[in-house]
Design a protein around this nucleic acid. Sequence first.
RNA 1: GGUGCGGUAGCCAAGCGGUUAGGCACUGGAUUGCAAAUCCAUGAACAUCGGUUCGAGUCCGAUCCGCACCUCCA
Length: 467
Amino acid sequence: MAFRIYNTMSRTKEELVPLDGKHVRMYTCGPTVYNYAHIGNFRAYMFEDLLRRYIKFCGFEVTQVQNLTDVDDKTIRSSIEQGLPLKTYTKKYIEAFFDDLAKLNIEPAEHYPAATDYIPEMIRLIETLFEKGYAYKSDDGSVYYSIDKFAGYGKLAHLDRDGMQAGARVAQDEYDKENAADFALWKAYVPEDGDVFWDSPWGRGRPGWHIECSAMSMKLLGESFDIHTGGVDNIFPHHEDEIAQSEGATGKPYSTYWMHCGYLVVDGKKMSKSLGNFYTLRQILDMGYTGREVRYELLSSHYRQSLNFAFKSLDANRSALKRLDEFYASLAEIAGSAEAGSLPEWAADTRARFTEAMDDDMNISGAMAALFDMVHAGNKAMAGKAPSAEEAAAVQSLWKELDSVLGILTPEEETISSEVTELLEARATARAEKNWAESDRIRDALAELGWTVKDTPEGPKLRKLQR
RNA sequence: GGUGCGGUAGCCAAGCGGUUAGGCACUGGAUUGCAAAUCCAUGAACAUCGGUUCGAGUCCGAUCCGCACCUCCA
């Protein structure tokens, strides 16, 4: 009955109880807009989309914030390489990001703050951290956070500070930090930054990465809010550092729940350009796959599981979606414009099974099984004694309700051209004359145009071919 | 070294103490002019070795294998 989610902080499933009654406030780490996002990124955004949709399905109101990191090493470096002002450079990728979200049928968040629009808030937050003794300035003008001052440091990642081994990626020459693990709140200006800098009480520079999320989340959602999400790789250091900054500054709990999705891997390996297994969404769409098929792929594995991306799966998804579309089309034919009545027996427990699975930390596999079981039972029913129009309409409305969570059940719009209609009529004539050769030729011609025709006892029916 | 996540039928993927998960693919049949769709039928599984239990993919222990993270990657 209650929605239970896995909280990385406690490492257990907990019931979602918002701080503010029926209103859930969530912060979802967004993209760094220096390039087109890859499908691994979208795995995270898909998980967040499913989460917000299901929260709404449960009857909560949602306010979601997703940040756009438009200033960091990569955006600065690439914009300078291309001789473009930072804002001009990032604008292109911000627009591409929104296009991609739309392709995947991801619902827009309520707020998309860009880091460069919140510099004053970040500076104020750093000032507070100075006042409370968490921040210190180094010789080069950068400002760091002293993790030794924050007792709770490591509570999210469950890192034992003594066990933290200096990894290969820790620059050995950062001698001006008090502790090698301290992280930058403000980075002093260096010539490589070009004209990207802001004035601050500590001199010219730019914000560190982590401070952006602390400042923007608390500005838009309040000092304490409900859910904070990201990929597992964000647990440490990013989210750990956000907690240190935010709770250090306010003395209040930051986010109640922390949710992290697993990695998307390709061929069992983390995507990387050097392995040649790196794909942007656009590349995949250019290969002829639809956003809907990709959505299905990203959706249909449990979010905390690592997801092995394979084109073979996309092909399988096409068949599965076709089955769903086929069912829904049959349903629509029976329903006509009837008012929804009561559900037929074969659909009666679907919603409960779906909800029960989703309530359990979004067990999407169980939810999909409930859906497919209904499709099977419904097909069986329709093959025999058909449901009434009112019953079919009731299933339609259930279908739409489930799709408010899944976002994959509504087929793309089909408009039939006059050319197709004429071919269909010509074929009907040929069939009446038992001219099978001509009939088959026309069927092939229709396939060329992207339509498959099925001969049923009620006459020929058209279905849009995928791709 | 530390911290996580995994290894389930041809492929993907739930279940985590006791009656068929589900999807894709495959096989036989019904239906069809042939198809398509659909239905019916059929098969196939829990990495290895021990242990607990009336009963274990499901709990415990050991082993093997894979992946990821350990300072700015979702």
